[in-house]
Design a protein around this nucleic acid. Structure first.
Lengths: 474, 474
DNA sequence: ATGGATTTGTCCGTATGTATG
DNA sequence: TCATACATACGGACAAATCCA
């Protein structure tokens, strides 16, 4: 990189270049943790530019959690352990769907701990619009026509890179299928796996999308018991199922992170029975404590994993872009089915191409890092608040990743009643037992999301919740 | 050269003059390399003109490699050594930007009679972008979140009005379900009709989307014979099916328009057997000869018709908005299924809301009327051309509506061969017999679309087609 | 130890290229 | 063509933190 003033740099911005350089130095280890960066003035003088771009670069690095500012003392590279501290975003998109429209029903919660809410305050809307305008102009009207039903090749290629770098997934662009809705993708999956098996083993509890879609497609569903490591392989082997659906990076709703040993065991199983593991990795980007666990898909050279991902949590639901990564042997089956039912693309090419640019120019990566920090703070605030108010009258489960935790209490009151009482005071939380396929746990469990609520409302909300629940706690 | 504002320069453009002046100064050495030019505003003020011509002049100089832009810092004269290299670069860049996006350019076909192509020359892209910007701004970030899974209420309401006014469909906004893909909607339909019947009667030939989707969902498919009025009700009654799928306004691919008497007969049948008619009305907007026939759905007060429509043909495929109109008694079943599989909205709210405004302010109606005229001209041109060239050696079927006709000829050659021969000469048409479910008709049939091809290419293309086919015609 | 000088993060006003309408 | 909005870049002001005689 050349930052001398008389160098030719007609394309990129100064602050972006400075940011990139420092980021690389941190990642590569050239800048060790706790190292103090050159001061803004010094750095600016060295580069012979003004202080502003340097300052902007530093701020971006702070937002993404690479460095921290100690006022009047300097900027310091943060500890690696902190850098990866992020809850992985839970894949929960559970909308309160018992109501006809989410829109119309606005009971206006004051403290909204809804689990699928995310924080749009930091969405780079200007950048997005800029790219959108770049993509969509009078010269590109042809983009209004049908595109590749599998998804725009350029975007699939970007997703490939991203998955490799961030989730350790190994695939080619041809393995990726893009769709506007998770249900649609699972439905396709159900169709192309029909000849392989007629039953699916699932985690219990679990998010109903996958198992209900398979069930309505004609599959039998086998609920599997779970332990601290996630789904129990022994039970799986005994079931004689050949397809299993899991969410190893942050199990819904419990938040279990499946250890690597168990992942390997499952991969071994899949190979033995020639089965398939459906790895639902929605939100695997967000972890708060340690480094993200590599995905099953990329753990071993393997042809038995179907990886599911999407941009709802990590960017915005409205762009309607989800994807699945099919092993090579399933790709022809997909095309066969796609042709048979005359499938068109379901995700708008305008959004797809905008997202491609967004990923290509680094904005996406920056956004993820920034959001990871934002959510980490909220996560910490929530845990502190629960500890402070509930003390030993509550247990928290699954707090190391995702955008929600499980709050577990003892009470004779039903989860529904407790939820209703909270709602009356303007607090939104959700009961968790609805996600169990059969028997429910002894304690009362609630899903407390922290993605959408403002940081400074968290403590207040939890305090109020504890206050109104006090008579009902044991 | 005089650049004073009062000077008379009737011929040349301002920006050209400014450009020439600076270019001369650079070439003559008056402006040394690395010199910073006056900023756009300063220069404009000095010349007492607006900033735009100065900006254009600077851009031209950049394109030709005389100067470079350092963002937010100024424009600088490039080094002479680089100037010649840049000249080449500029050339390349110019070529690049003159290409109308990478995607579309497939110069394979000179005369593209593809059936699903539509004419984007008249798409009101500026108006659309205006509305898009109105809809999508920093204040509306919340629109990036999940919306109503059934579709935005505002848009559903607009569609209701439109359907009533243009297609004679009677419904409420609550009856409309919006989805990103036809296959998805039919799939949902298949799921919620499961308890009603396990077989579907379909037209033969037909577009495979509906029947193959039903078939993979587990339904049996009954192909029904057709006559000049469309699907034969006698055969339908004999089949004991209770669900039938038809496209009465412009049957695919034959183009039959079902007369009102037959429609009434079918409605009668549906009532008797408590069955359902799936009315696929794609392309019903475009009729060229007489008034549009009212849809079955609105013909009689009836609770047995499911209406299918979308905006792919009439506006643009890429907005990914299709819809179905469910009778009241099916609406609860839809919600039940939607909740069970945790369905989210699949069409982008940004597009939905933009479309809503587009319909609300009358642009949509104007666009339809305009396109109807455009396609009518092309339709007439195509018929004239076929008559002129093929004379009595070809028959045309289904020419009164839609965006394609069936060209029917006698030949010993296969449809595939004839299609291939046409392709070699740069003509794209499609064989029609692939759409028959069993036996094929005696004559060779081809689908000739006229939506995408330029008006003045039609006669030429048909002439060429006739010319190359002459030896094979009987 | 101390007070002044220096360094530093932070904030702000202005200028500029770019995009939009 | 003009006017406007916006993010960036420049350079300076200020107070807190640090350093040094």
């Amino acid at each position: 990189m050349n930052l001398l003033p008389n160098s030719t740099m007609s394309k990129s911005y100064l602050h972006t270049e400075i940011y990139e350089k420092i980021k690389q130095d941190i990642i590569s280890g050239k800048l060790r943790e706790q190292t103090r960066l050159a001061s803004i003035r010094k750095h600016a003088e060295f580069l012979a530019v003004s202080t502003t771009p340097v300052e902007m670069a530093y701020r971006q690095l702070i937002a993404e959690g690479f460095i921290e500012s100690r006022p009047r003392r300097g900027f310091f590279v943060v500890k690696m352990s902190e850098m990866y501290r992020n809850l992985d975003m839970a894949q929960v998109q559970y909308l309160d769907s018992s109501l006809p429209t989410l829109q119309a029903q606005k009971p206006e919660y004051i403290y909204d701990f809804h689990m699928s809410k995310i924080d749009f305050a930091y969405f780079p809307i200007q950048e997005w619009k800029r790219l959108l305008n770049q993509v969509f102009n009078p010269e590109s009207v042809d983009m209004l026509f049908y595109g590749d039903p599998q998804g725009e090749p350029g975007l699939r290629s970007e997703i490939t890179n991203y998955l490799y770098q961030f989730r350790g997934v190994n695939c080619q662009a041809d393995n990726i299928v893009i769709g506007a809705e998770q249900h649609l993708l699972i439905h396709i999956l159900g169709q192309i796996l029909k000849d392989h098996s007629d039953c699916v083993a699932v985690e219990n509890p679990a998010y109903p999308l996958v198992y209900n879609t398979f069930q309505t497609t004609g599959y039998q569903i086998y609920p599997m018991p779970m332990d601290a490591g996630g789904l129990d392989p022994t039970a799986l082997k005994a079931s004689h199922a050949r397809i299993v659906s899991i969410s190893p990076s942050h199990q819904f709703p419990v938040g279990t992170v499946m250890p690597v040993s168990r992942r390997l065991e499952l991969l071994e199983w899949a190979k033995e029975v020639d089965g398939f593991i459906i790895e639902d990795d929605y939100g695997g980007e967000f972890r708060y404590q340690d480094k993200p666990v590599p995905s099953l898909q990329g753990l071993l050279p393997n042809d038995n994993v179907i990886y599911l991902g999407g941009f709802s949590q990590v960017l915005a639901p409205d762009i309607c872009i989800h994807y699945m990564v099919l092993p090579d042997k399933l790709v022809p089956l997909y095309h066969q089915y796609r042709r048979k039912v005359m499938m068109e693309g379901s995700s708008s090419r305008i959004h797809q191409n905008t997202l491609e640019l967004f990923m290509k120019n680094g904005s996406f990566e920056r956004h993820i890092r920034r959001m990871r920090n934002v959510y980490r703070k909220k996560n910490r605030e929530l845990l502190t608040a629960i500890q402070q108010h509930f003390k030993n009258k509550a247990t928290v489960i699954g707090a190391s990743a995702g955008l929600h935790v499980i709050l577990q209490i003892h009470s004779h009151w039903s989860e529904e009643d407790l939820t209703a009482i909270a709602r009356k005071e303007g607090i939104r939380i959700s009961p968790a037992t609805g996600f169990y396929l059969d028997e429910t746990p002894g304690q009362k469990q609630f899903i407390v999301g922290f993605g959408g609520i403002k940081l400074n409302c968290i403590n207040e909300g939890i305090g109020l919740l504890h206050h109104i629940w006090t008579p009902m706690l044991q």
